[in-house]
């Protein structure tokens, strides 16, 4: 698969996703309740409907816009992409893919691990509690960033967790949850 067709394929997929999102959005406008409205003036549905239609049109355009146009656009932006110091993900995107599907999508274990750690933190923090979740996050994330010395990782994570937790909770009155540590403090 050469670079050009990849870019084009991605544009088509983006178009499809945008179209689907806009259809879902438009579908949801049916669930907006009707309240009294001065006759002939836009109600709560008008604006979302308008937005949904414009968004759908944009998706449709990406999906079916003529191929030669895409090629021209690519030709114009290709030199720019070549000279810029490419970020790894961006580089993956433009380089010819090697390996399996995983790599072709620009994914590798590091990328997946990063997002898993970040999203996991956001998901579990309210229940697990701030101190434990934050400590785990800091340990994992620091290691993903290449710091492998255990004493540094643990020491730093503990220190940052403690300073941030107590600083925000008692200094700035942010209600941070103790979570699983609750039984210990009460």
């Amino acid at each position: 698969m050469d670079i050009a067709s990849r870019g084009s394929l991605r544009t088509r997929i983006e178009g499809l996703v945008i179209l689907l999102v806009s259809l879902g959005y438009l579908w949801e406008t049916f669930n907006i309740p009707d309240f009294y409205q001065l006759p002939d003036t836009p109600g709560p549905k008008t604006f979302p409907e308008l937005l949904g239609i414009v968004f759908a049109a944009m998706g449709l355009w990406l999906l079916v816009s003529p191929r030669d146009l895409m090629a021209r656009l690519r030709a114009r932006s290709a030199p720019a992409a070549g000279t810029a110091p490419a970020a790894p993900a961006a580089a993956d995107d433009h380089a010819a893919p090697t390996g399996g599907l995983f790599a072709r999508l620009g994914l590798d274990w590091h990328f997946v691990a990063l997002w898993a750690v970040v999203l996991g933190y956001l998901w579990f923090m309210p229940d697990v509690g701030f101190p434990v979740a934050t400590f785990v996050l800091l340990v994992l994330f620091t290691m993903l960033l290449g710091e492998m010395r255990w004493h540094v990782v643990l020491g730093l994570s503990l220190a940052v967790t403690a300073v941030v937790f107590f600083g925000f909770k008692y200094g700035l009155n942010v209600r941070l949850p103790w979570g699983v540590l609750e039984p210990l403090v009460n």
Binding site: L138, T161, V164, V174, L176
Partner: peptide, 18 residues
């Protein structure tokens, strides 16, 4: 960056949580 970025992540999360 390996020390700064994790801390930034934590403080940003507090910003949302608060």
């Amino acid at each position: 960056a390996k020390y700064l970025m994790p801390t930034v992540l934590v403080i940003s999360t507090i910003g949302v949580w608060s």
